[in-house]
């Protein structure tokens, strides 16, 4: 089983596919669930406090806007853990939406920077492209080590 970072990081479809092929998706939903359940922190809606952007300094310099660094405080640690990655380019909002273009650029850059198996694929617009899209992702996921001991 490999830890697979997905982009867009909140894509339910991608997350589900990774899981179906026996791997662990590194996705925003899980991360958000984790922080909103943090006992003792009450900063709705996402429970991100001013500490978040400070933690984001590990991934982006201080002159980068607080919103980018706050997002990177969630996404950055996931990239650190990633053993493989899937980046879907030009996807529609319904497939997953990251909100901030600067965060998107940095996220994709940091994933590409890592020496991990990576699939970069464009979002499909026709049925034929859709089938090819699913096939390529499936083949990529099948190619990843299936057991944690095989890493």
């Amino acid at each position: 089983m490999a830890k697979v970072i997905i982009y867009p990081t909140n894509s339910l479809i991608l997350s589900d596919m990774v899981e179906r092929f026996g791997h662990e998706p590194l996705a925003m939903m899980e991360k958000i669930k984790e922080i909103i359940n943090t006992v003792g922190v009450d900063s709705p809606p996402l429970n991100i406090t001013p500490e978040g952007p400070k933690h984001g300094l590990k991934y982006a310099a201080v002159e980068v806007p607080a919103g980018v660094r706050g997002r990177m405080s969630l996404i950055g640690p996931m990239i650190d853990l990633a053993e493989a990655g899937i980046i879907v380019g030009d996807s529609s909002f319904s497939f997953g939406c990251m909100g901030c273009a600067r965060t998107n650029e940095l996220t994709k850059f940091l994933i590409r920077e890592k020496d991990i198996p990576l699939l970069e694929i464009q979002y499909p617009h026709t049925e034929e492209e859709g089938q090819d899209f699913v096939y390529k992702i499936a083949e990529f996921l099948k190619s990843l080590p299936s057991g944690s001991d095989e890493k």
């Binding site: 996402l46 991100i48 978040g52 952007p53 706050g70 909100g99």
Partner: peptide, 14 residues
């Protein structure tokens, strides 16, 4: 707004 919930300032706004 854009990003206020990620920048840790949403609760201050509220």
């Amino acid at each position: 707004s854009c990003g206020s919930e990620y920048a840790g300032v949403q609760s201050e706004l509220e």
